[in-house]
Design a binder for these strands. Structure first.
Lengths: 203, 203
DNA sequence: TGAATATACGGAACATCGCTCCGTTTAACA
DNA sequence: TGTTAAACGGAGCGATGTTCCGTATATTCA
């Protein structure tokens, strides 16, 4: 995608630049698998056999690199939303299944969920990229479930995704914590809550 | 506690050492309020008017300092557990109230919840201190609620505290995310799940 | 009171980050 | 083949957690 659109207004990138971008993506993917998404940029540069400058020219920040590596998986998750909504028995079932996909994606990438919290301004890009694409998808499923009267109203896509992302943070390195189960409990809570119309549990 | 037990086996600490420990605790507390628990150790040393070495002699790692600063609040939270269990109408009510205390504690300290995830080995001490004291308390309330048939079985104190802590991470800096509400949903999920084995009861 | 000594102190120094800068190399094109 | 703009590499910067060690001092004992 990044390459093709160069045919339009911008002049085509140089061959070595295009090659290095791919080399970097491959190297980053490999390093992320081995050391998690917190791996030093230097390690990725070394693995790719390029200098630091090259990394940062292609991906202005660590978060951009992370985003780029997982872009196709984000896309797959996004596309699964409408499909699940169409094929599942009920919107709530779709919500559960879609959440399962998202959780599965998060917990297999070391530190990805933690990074999504985006406290330090650097990760804001990652935060945004994930959420820009997936929040609308999640929101659509949520609204469908709401309309069907299956869950409580007033939980937005962002709110739920943020909660799920948080629940998954650090889960892969903690055998005593079962993120998938707690996400299941959270989703059950969406359903159980629907009996109260009053939104402010705590004021 | 650190001072008193010196009367036993270990020789009493030097006066300047005792004084500096307190000065450091006060300085750290102030800096944490202003800049969050992620504040640089240097900033705390400067605020206290001591050198870096002094900080690390008293608190071998940043996490130990954080733990020490909030120790009395952790203690208050721990002591509230049995009390709530005794005074609340039902164990589940106690669970909700106790969770409210814990959440209130976490969200008012910038970055504390995030630190609790303890990814980087440094924060393991913080992780442990919080959990060693509070997990049994939480577990007791959970078991009481289980025994009363109010919640699903098989969720341990660690599991729930970890989930709540995660849900609160980064909440204070994200106006679009309401951690307290999502904790409420999670707790509702604990109750909602029981309907699988006991369909009749509705709160 | 005046050494003697263990204890504590201060802050420079080290390792590790993310990220920037700039002199050098090289692909693209006439 | 020569020109030029794009891309490269990696040293360097600033920040951070942590360690080290020479110096200062509280405490003790004569």
């Amino acid at each position: 995608m990044t390459d093709q659109e160069q045919g339009g207004g911008a002049p085509r990138k140089r061959a070595d630049a295009r090659r290095n971008e791919q080399v970097l993506l491959d190297a980053a993917a490999a390093v992320f698998v081995e050391s998690g998404v917190d791996a030093p940029v230097r390690a990725i540069a070394a693995r790719a056999g390029v200098g630091m400058g090259t990394v940062y020219r292609h991906f202005p920040t660590r978060a951009d690199l992370v985003t780029a590596v997982y872009r196709h998986q984000i896309e797959a998750c996004a596309e699964a939303g409408p499909r699940l909504l169409a094929t599942s028995d009920t919107p709530y079932d779709a919500l559960v299944e879609w959440s399962g996909l998202f959780v599965g994606f998060l917990v297999t990438k070391h530190g990805l969920a933690a990074a999504m919290q985006g406290d330090s301004a650097g990760f804001q890009a990652l935060h945004a990229s994930f959420l820009d694409r997936l929040v609308p998808v999640c929101g659509e499923i949520l609204r469908a479930a709401e309309d069907a009267g299956q869950i409580t109203a007033g939980i937005g896509g962002y709110q739920l995704m943020r909660a799920i992302g948080n629940l998954c943070a650090g889960a892969e390195s903690d055998p005593g914590y079962d993120a998938e189960r707690m996400v299941g409990v959270l989703l059950a809570g969406l359903r159980g809550d629907r009996r109260r119309s009053d939104p402010g549990v705590r004021g």
